[in-house]
Amino acid sequence: MPLLEIRSLRVAFDTAKGPFKALDGVDYTVDAGEVLAIVGESGSGKSVAMLATMGLLPDSATITADKMDFEGIDLRTLSAKERRKVIGKDISMIFQEPIASLNPCFTVGFQLGETLKVHTDLKGRQIRDRSIELLTDVGIPDPAGRIDAFPHQMSGGQCQRVMIAMAIACAPKLLIADEPTTALDVTIQKQILDLLVQLQQDSGMGLIMITHDMGVVAETADRVIVQYKGRKMEEADVLSLFENPQSPYTRALLSALPENATGDRLPTVSDFAEAGGF
């Protein structure tokens, strides 16, 4: 049984110009111990799918799916309360802006402790010990000292590490990372990606990487879903995707990478759109 299985997910938003289809019948499956990358440009609906799964979309969104199972539990029928039990414990998520994702009024230790308090039976001293342990796991130097630091006293990379610590605090079975390194510098990005992949391998959880960066995909993923304008263009394991892309859109994306440039001009997606008809 796959860890997460979604069939024919559709999401539409109400806007001033009528309903906007953000996702139009896309399937997702993730197995335990697997790194799935969802790659696409803005407007491809890559984040929407996972936000819909987490129940984090605003009320203006209409979500339908033929199937939305997590470990055999139908997420569609869960009440808000039951959903909260699953989400945050078994599924957790990290976001693009690490500094904005942390509450500036509280120390990182306190925020980490809150997560532990809600989802585990740990108490008092144990929570603090576990928090320090988690901060050690995500590679924060001097965790016992940094636990009482406020988010603004830490760098972006460290904040993202704290976010990861919060996300893995309850040993989730599935971690969703929504553009986790987009706001970070290249050298920090490398460290965070390495950390995520290492944590994933150690714990055997499923990891979904949502990204627009083909480099990030190449460095982390086992399997890749390429999306464009709310539809799935291609699904393949990472090597065959880069070696032998099937969809014209994927080919377009790969050839638009500056490092793959052959001539004077970069081919653009629209060059391919006419030929490929997507």
Binding site: K190, D213, V217, A218, V238, F242
Partner: peptide, 22 residues
């Protein structure tokens, strides 16, 4: 040098190497 090393590589060779290491 650090900067170059940290830049993600999207070529097939690097992916092969990574998958083999994994």
């Amino acid at each position: 040098k650090t900067l170059f090393a940290a830049t993600p590589k999207a070529d097939v060779e690097s992916i092969r190497k990574r998958l083999a290491a994994k």
